[in-house]
Design a protein around this nucleic acid. Sequence first.
DNA 1: CCATCAGCTTTTTTT
DNA 2: AAGCTGATGG
Length: 718
Amino acid sequence: MTPSISIDCLTASQRQAVLHKDGPLLVLAGPGSGKTRVITCRIAQLIDSGVRPWNICAITFTNKAAEEMRLRVERSTPASGVYLSTFHSLCVWILRRYPEEAQVKANFSIFDAGDQQRCMKEAIKDSKLEAASFSPARMLEYVSRLKNELEDVEDFESRAHDYFTKNAAQVYRRYQKILKLNNALDFDDLLVRTAFLLRDHPEVRQSLSHRFHYLLIDEYQDTNRAQYQIAKGIALAHHNICVTGDPDQAIYRWRGADIGNILAFEKDWPETVVVKLEENFRSTPNILGKADQLIAFNTRRKQKKLIATRPAGQDIEIQTCDDENAEARYVAEQAQAMIEKKIDPNEIAVFYRVNSMSRAIEEAFVQRQLPYQVVRGIEFYARKEVRDLLSYLKLMANPEDNVAFDRAIGTHSRGIGKTSIERLEEFARIQGISLLSAALRAEQVETINRPTRLRLKEFAQMIAQFQQKVQGPTAPLMEEVFTASGLAGAFGSDEDAIENIDSLISAAAAYDRRVEQPNLTDYLQMVSLYSDSDAYDSSSGRVSLMSLHAAKGLEFDHVFIVGLEDGVLPHERSIEAGPEDMEEERRLLFVGMTRARKTLGISYARHRVIRGQFIRSTPSQFLYEIGFAGESRAVQSEQWDSGSDQYMYEPQDVPSVKTSIPYRVDELVEHSKFGMGRIKEILDLGEDSIVVVKFLSGNTKSLMLKYANLRKVGVKEQ
DNA sequence: CCATCAGCTTTTTTT
DNA sequence: AAGCTGATGG
């Protein structure tokens, strides 16, 4: 057989990683080091050397990454069947394969953040705790942390001694009980249950090791304890575990990711071969140098080189803006100029720390009619009409899902009110049955008035009717449920809603075509694991707007990072939390910066509206760490209703060049693009005078005075 | 039972 | 700014 892949064009280190065969392998891959390519080649190489594709399990961080890797693998080797997905999807797959051992029913619901909140509220209410110190958000975070540490209810109860932990233990117990009653698992449970399944069942471990003889895990620096245990469980029998990652790109500590997993890999697997990929094939040395300079401020890290291989390009631009609208205008204008220069919008991206910051940018793009996409996958599935329709389907797939029942019955008025539902819940609780079963026996619920009992029964029977058809393709099912449930009627003339439902059904139809045996449970579990970054379309022909977290793993020619302010990036919460979280914020910016191939524009605003409050802000400390020399001339906000043009710019800022030159050699000046510098030379040519300025960035530039817009440093703006 | 509105809180990041 | 809760009136 002729080798189907070419490794000739790989570097020595890359080749070493690709050709490594059995035993543990740790690939420490810096940004832009061709890591994805190495993994792909390695999979193809394994297949070429006789490993059967289905014996390979490759885990990526997002579904999108898995999808793309599948395409790449199938392009480099004719064989297919590699198990390729995320940790969460793998867990669903495992749990459904071993339901008895894992003590789950295969049709379990996966509860998203909203569902979790609902359950947590109920758990807190049942525990009769005061809301102030036991808010749902806080308790969810707390419970999630316990789960990430693989601490189950019993473990935690046994070490809970003070007031808070004792109550927290009670809430944890009730919360888990509610999930169980709903036949539901939350995101953390997927991992925890799988980890426990592997811990407690050697035969399952063995069978999985047999099935997955080679395990590859990407973004290993962002795995948590449960994921670590799962990986270990699968690989223990054969040690064929290859992990890739970069401790400097760890950005998920807050959700339990343990950077120690990658740092201690060599201790876990003593015969580990370590390959470092330090060359960077992505960014210009200008960008890479600054990124390196930034990350060097982190103390808790493994020293690593970033070796640039690209030719020099433009320097990073740091732009001061008056407020978030001015900042948005700056980005939009730059993007517009690029697009007019025939730069592909697909190659432009804007990153921000929090999703709410997309708003101002979007407005500026809309105003200039620039094409953009906001990468936020769950947004679509969070729409009311979509959630409404899905709640019927969830209820059909899992009749015990009371959260889905609640939502489905309340999608539109059908003469069943809050009190009736409460009474039904009471009845269900006493009988120990689900809401749907209770509704089927509504005539027995004497506390509810007679006509409402009838309506409840009618609803339950309708669902029962639907349930007859759960098997098979999902799209026709959706179509039918949408009309028969009365939802279609309720949305009536809402064209947006109808359009969204249409896209939902089209997506379901695509799923039906894609998989061999489409089925509702499978579809719903897949949809639940759909993530933000999955919505990224690399050929949309639009500029991409996304959070810094969503930017992980992507790359663009031109990148803008906005909101480099104290309190935004680094985020206020992280500043409060201490140095470890501050280092993670720094890594987050590092990740953002290293996405850029050719140009990088960073901006901050002197004022910003946060949660409806006008806040005055100062530049992020990270700006100073990458050599920011102080405020340059700010982009002003556009004034629409008040004042005329003359108030938009500050005229005293424009140096007069008509008379003699207002500068002297050695004077400190500031340039809007190049920052602070010192005048080295002045050529008095009247109108066309030239000044030579050595900027703090190290560059020396000759500038036409009349165009340079220099500003004297130390001259205060009001 | 249901729609509406005033008043209140709101921890970023995501699977 | 936006979403949620509880109160009010039809």
